[in-house]
């Protein structure tokens, strides 16, 4: 099984600030970022919720080998419902998603897809992203199986354009 470093809250802060800097570099000032890079966990999410997100997905087990068929299904769904806002290697309407699993737990990714509005309302990392990007991520009504397939596809996507 591929190992994922567990993100501590401080690591998340750093990553978020990196993302914020990235946005700034594109001339998108985060004036409204009253949080100023600091995480506010006003809803008192648990450490586990900070890492895995809030939503229906408690645990995901990833196989060592990428399931290519599942990833292809995920790619189709991603192209239909997600590419209008996400690219892999650069900021677009939403954050770049290449190498996303080095920054987020798989559960976080699926909960973000499946339970979008609660994640936006409660999760400090997502609230911070909203302050930077200004466009709340829409719920695109994926099923859990759809979201799992998209996750598999995202495993195949590096951050840098190949």
């Amino acid at each position: 099984m591929r190992a994922y470093p567990i993100l501590t809250p401080s690591a998340i802060v750093i990553l978020t600030m990196v993302l914020g800097a990235c946005g700034g570099a594109q001339g998108d000032s985060t004036e409204s970022g009253a949080t100023n890079g600091a995480l506010t966990n006003a809803d008192g999410l648990s450490q586990e919720q900070i890492e895995k997100g809030v939503g229906p997905i408690q645990s995901v087990s990833l196989t060592d080998q990428i399931d290519q068929a599942l990833a292809r299904t995920g790619e189709e769904i991603f192209n239909m419902k997600c590419t209008a806002c996400h690219k892999m290697d650069q900021r677009y309407v939403g954050p770049p998603l290449g190498d996303i699993l080095t920054r987020r737990k798989p559960e976080f990714v699926m909960n973000m897809i499946l339970n979008t509005s609660e994640m936006i309302q409660k999760h400090p990392v997502v609230k911070e992203l909203l302050a930077q990007y200004m466009t709340p991520m829409p719920n695109q009504n994926l099923t859990e199986a759809d979201a799992r397939a998209v996750l598999e596809y995202l495993r195949t996507q590096p951050a840098a354009a190949q």
Binding site: M80, K81, P138, Q140
Partner: peptide, 8 residues
């Protein structure tokens, strides 16, 4: 309209 959410 690529949205898949209600009321959008």
């Amino acid at each position: 309209n690529l949205e898949q959410d209600w009321d959008i």
